[in-house]
Design a protein around this nucleic acid. Structure first.
Lengths: 216, 216
DNA sequence: CCTACCGATCGGTAGG
DNA sequence: CCTACCGATCGGTAGG
């Protein structure tokens, strides 16, 4: 049922469009990816300002100055984490909707979207999107605008579903406001959900549908 | 309608239980309160780790070392902000429920609770609770436990209302899970609500009730 | 990628 | 509360 067990791999941006050149370049991509993964984990746990580039370097098995070989600045690393996270989330969301089929009822499409979003927030290897959600203010204005566009596209996929439920009388609030509240309800689960709790992501999804549409 | 125009003043903790001693001590309370207010504003805008004690001192018109005359550490100042915020919010929430009367229907009690919570999150002078919500991790374990108790008491006041709505069939999700999702939906508004937007806090409240209970 | 380093900033303190 | 200060840490860089 989970549309994304692990988020699908995406080619490292540094390699995009260039021909592969064997070992050296693949390693370079690996090191860059490793830095992003460790940065995401640490930014989530301790915040952007609470994490030093030395922490990140050590977690990736590097010396303190080495992250700056791969990223222009600490802020650029944060930006890369958010872009990569949004690109993956957008791709896996689209894949989940496609797998469901276009003629599925609105309630089922909402279930798929919510279940997928919980996976992105709470599933294994899910540090990138929580970092985007909570470390937003540490980007500069231009970076915020760029990430905002990716986030808007991701959330826009929910609107046809919310409008259909609204027309059918299953969603009473205005769809635009409902979207804001629903994303809030789901995103906030990052603050309280724990693996060792009794709720699975499927049960979480069912309860969310009950709350918003009155049925599961 | 807003039960709290400005959050009700609470005597500064340093003075509690002691007899008033005129100018000097009242000033001391004022300086302490000013530090907390400026700290809350800056912690909200830039985060705990992104705010220096020098920033806070300057905003309160002091020299860089002076905050440590009033607070043992930067972390103790954060803790004080959260405690003060929760004490005020708890008091104003209780006052709002009391003003409504005990025999009001569950839907009206939920409206009062939600409207009050929006005021605490988004109204004038509302920096203390957002700081508590988003800077949680910067407290040590003992401080977290203490603030957690205040937060639990605040949220517990919602449970009889949610259970009544659940029994009446107006709230379909399990009340405990509904509470988590509802607080998430409301709390997240801190991230997107803007004063110059078209929604008033009353309209926000009405849309939230529509989403969760199907009626406003 | 590592080594070696710099300038800036930070939380906090002693002594008044 | 201010003055003057300290040790630690931080982001980032030059040169290889």
């Amino acid at each position: 049922m989970p549309p994304v067990a692990a988020l699908p791999a995406i080619p490292p941006p540094a390699r995009r469009g260039r021909p592969r050149k064997m070992e050296s370049e693949r390693d370079e991509g690996n090191r860059r990816q490793a830095l992003m993964a460790e940065a995401a984990r640490l930014f989530r746990a301790k915040g952007f300002d609470g994490t030093s580039t030395r922490d990140i370097a050590a977690a990736a098995g590097m010396q303190s100055g080495s992250p700056f070989y791969f990223f222009q600045s600490k802020q650029a690393l944060l930006h890369a984490v958010m872009q990569e996270g949004m690109a993956r989330a957008e791709a896996s969301q689209a894949a989940a909707l496609k797998a469901l089929g276009a003629r599925a009822p609105a309630q089922e499409r909402l279930r798929t979207l919510a279940r997928h979003h919980f996976e992105v927030l709470l599933g294994p290897g899910s540090d990138f999107i929580p970092v985007m959600l909570f470390e937003w203010r540490s980007l500069d204005a231009a970076q915020q605008q760029e990430v905002r566009a990716l986030k808007d596209a991701y959330e826009a996929a929910w609107m046809p579903v919310l409008r259909a439920l609204h027309r059918a009388g299953r969603l009473k609030a205005r769809p635009e406001v409902a979207r804001l509240f629903i994303f809030g309800a789901l995103n906030w689960s990052v603050q309280w959900f724990s693996d060792r709790g009794q709720l699975s992501l499927d049960e979480l999804t069912a309860q969310a549908l009950l709350l918003f549409t009155g049925q599961a």
